[in-house]
Simulated scan of single mutants.
Amino acid sequence: MEEEKITLRPFTISDADDFMVWASDDKVSHFCSWNTFTDKNTLIDHIEKTILPHPWFRAICLNGRPVGAILFTPATGNDSCRGELGYMLASQLWGKGVMTKAVKLAVKSVFEEMKGLERVEALVDVENKGSLKVLEKVGFLKEGVLRKYFVLKGRTRDMVMFSLLSTDTIYA
């Protein structure tokens, strides 16, 4: 993947066909809060109503073409010093370093863009081994396991809390 360029950019409606590639893949949606998309019109509606208005939701592009998504949801009020990172990637690209690079780019960007941000958090299902490895490679600190923390698709899940502070060193 070294010779291929990984970039982040805002989504557009015209990304729907590329988005459908991974959004319709059960392997990708397995650990996501949303169900696998089976209809392009439903996905377009999701893009219009959820993704475009989101404060920081980016396409992960490989040579300019969307292959995944990464989002940062800033907290508000007394919690405004932190926010949560989430991501997804086309399954055929898993294990190739794409997500590690995308997370580095995203973290660097949100720390630069969001005034007062001191902490980026990520909650990962204990069974999502690939995602656990990505965060460790980027330099996130594993803070602990939050037992029975999240209901995912009707089942209570244990989640691992990771964090990266604005003072931590990462190399994009």
Rank of each mutant, 00 (worst) to 15 (best):
L123I: 06
T42Q: 15
C32I: 06
A16E: 09
S131T: 09
Y87C: 11
F37Y: 09
D168M: 10
K148C: 11
T42V: 10
A102K: 00
C81K: 11
D25Q: 07
D45N: 14
E84G: 06
M1F: 04
K49Q: 14
E127G: 11
T50Y: 08
I47C: 05
H54Y: 02
K153S: 02
R157V: 02
K27W: 03
K5I: 14
L132N: 13
F37W: 01
L85P: 08
K129P: 03
H46I: 04
P55I: 00
N128Q: 04
K104I: 00
E143V: 05
M20E: 08
E112R: 12
M159H: 09
C81P: 00
L8S: 02
A75L: 12
K142M: 02
T12V: 10
R58C: 13
K133I: 06
L8V: 01
G144T: 08
T12L: 04
K96L: 10
V126A: 07
A75K: 15
I70D: 03
T42Y: 03
E112F: 03
K104E: 12
I170S: 09
H54S: 11
V160R: 02
L85E: 04
F11N: 12
T7M: 00
L146R: 13
V21S: 07
V110S: 07
E3N: 15
